[in-house]
Design a protein around this nucleic acid. Structure first.
Lengths: 314, 314
DNA sequence: CGGTTTCGGTCTATCAAAGTCACCATGCGT
DNA sequence: ACGCATGGTGACTTTGATAGACCGAAACCG
């Protein structure tokens, strides 16, 4: 611990994140020469080459060790960053920090936040977006919302809501492709792929078909949110989580070419409360609100919307 | 990321780990004054108090935020440290890094390592001890050995071996207590408790009894290894994992007061291979060796020991 | 009670690490 | 050919981490 060259590792993390030395310098707000020197010093200190072509003039290539260490360094930096944020914002008695994935935060949580402010005006919510590469509570957030099958480990998760997936595409692309309406038409469509295994075309093909579907063709993006954006821009068909695209379907930026054909994932969203802070009153209030929000949309109940907004929607 | 005061956070982590400013200074190999200033600067930068009694002269008390941030900082430092170690040692083609818990490394893996060196002389094994607070492969180790129920998440674990737990104690304590032999005698014994839920007396009472057993009395130690050491020193009865105390029972430093009464946990040790490096030949060799070692002791076969050592044991 | 050791806080001066700046060669689009 | 991106390098500057000495307070011990 005492000898860890933290600044050098930070530089490495920045290089890994941005993919270059000058961009890393910009990210860190320092000169690129410092980053360059940092990499050299780090390699000298480790006595292990982190790059393949350190001498060449063109874009650098990470070695296997370089990738591994960079990932770890970036991870550590992100963790620290998140923890610092939580420490800063979580000091108030009425503040609740929720950690979740970018896509869920963007597509489900953020649109509903105003409702929480109305119900509990005093609660200050901080949303912490992470990649869930750490164990659930490592960030120190009060609540953690995770997607996927039940996390079996030590924690006991609260089921938030179920999920189903189905293909979606932009209206523009739909018309361009001749308004397809049968799942067999997927064969001729550009597919958009996700890293999330529960929204993989392989599962869809297995349960719905068509069997001849080639699940390898098409671009493979790293974030569900990116996938949906690509779909909205008409770049292809995405297998979407129903919960995350309610708004896009309602506003017409995405449509379901195959009607109600969908694949049920069962309960797929879980709340994991921080064992240390999760029992606080405010936190429990937020949990209750989350559960009620999930209910509202799960069972129809468009009439269950609180009165104020009806003027605008009407 | 660019503004993270890494050295200050490292100082905080050291203070958290050692419990004091001067000790932290010793740990880091710097003056205590530096640590003191670091804490002050960090609090000023965060605008959040990390300690209750920063002005007082006596041992400092962490605030809630202080504990949370310190944990995160220490965690990040440990991760970085481990990754650096892996990067340094893992650069050879014949090196395999195994990450596991302190107790498993100490009680099962280390004693068997010489055998691996005999079977595969060229393989260089590095053992990385961690606390598993991170997601399985965050350290970059080639193999990860975990205890507990099957880790359901994205990874697909290889079952290593099963486990059973039973009470053990030192021969000295056993005689002192009048050589008890019935599980009901547990009522009058000092119990040693573990953080590991699968070796908690609560589970034992539920499946074996006695029902009146008070599972709260007795010291609560943080590491399985500590528990076993305490038991060997006659400080009480520990609920031990059978796999980890074979040597102690064989050498007579621990005994099983209740004979064969035990609680089966089923498959409880898992190997998780690093998806990036786990397919390397050497790594697969080590996996094979681990599995065969687990077999050797699982089904009797004391005769399966390779010949050399029989002289000494006879 | 005084002696000793430990604790943490604070101050100043110092020195190396981290950073700025300027310049170079290279490759890639136009 | 030109502009603009990429990295690499060397000389200079600044700032932050650090050593070292000193202080007061508390605990321990005879």
């Amino acid at each position: 611990m005492r000898d860890l060259p933290l600044t050098l590792l930070r530089a490495l993390a920045a290089v890994y994140e941005t993919g270059g030395i000058r961009p890393a310098g910009r990210l860190l707000g320092i000169q690129h020469s410092v980053v360059s020197r940092a990499l050299r010093d780090l390699e000298a200190w480790l006595e292990v080459p982190l790059f393949e072509n350190r001498d060449g003039q063109r874009a650098l290539i990470f070695s296997a060790e370089g990738v591994a260490l960079s990932k770890a360094a970036l991870d550590a930096m992100k963790n620290l960053e998140a923890s610092v944020l939580v420490t800063r914002e979580g000091s108030s008695a009425n503040s609740v920090t929720i950690a979740t994935t970018p896509s869920f935060a963007m597509r489900w949580l953020l649109p509903r936040l105003p409702g929480l402010t109305e119900t509990h005006p005093k609660i200050e919510v901080s949303i912490l977006v992470d990649q869930a590469r750490k164990s659930p509570m490592a960030t120190g957030a009060d609540l953690n919302i995770r997607m996927g099958a039940q996390p079996s480990q030590d924690v006991d998760p609260i089921p938030l809501m179920d999920e189903r997936v189905f293909p979606v595409m932009s209206p523009g692309l739909w018309e361009k492709l001749g308004k397809p309406s049968e799942t067999d038409d997927l064969l001729d469509m550009p597919l958009l792929h996700d890293r999330d295994p529960s929204t993989s075309w392989g599962i869809w093909r297995k349960h719905v078909g068509p069997e001849r579907l080639d699940v390898r063709k098409g671009p493979r993006l790293t974030s569900s949110d990116l996938i949906l954006r690509a779909a909205e821009q008409g770049q292809g068909v995405a297998l979407a989580r129903g919960r995350l695209i309610e708004e896009s379907v309602a506003s017409g930026s995405l449509l379901r070419p195959f009607g109600d054909v969908e694949l049920d994932l069962g309960t797929n969203y879980w709340i994991i409360a921080n064992p240390e802070t999760g029992r606080r009153r405010v936190v429990q209030n937020v949990v209750g609100w989350l559960l009620s929000e999930a209910q509202n949309v799960c069972d129809e109940a468009p009439t269950a919307i609180s009165g104020e907004e009806q003027d605008q929607t009407a």
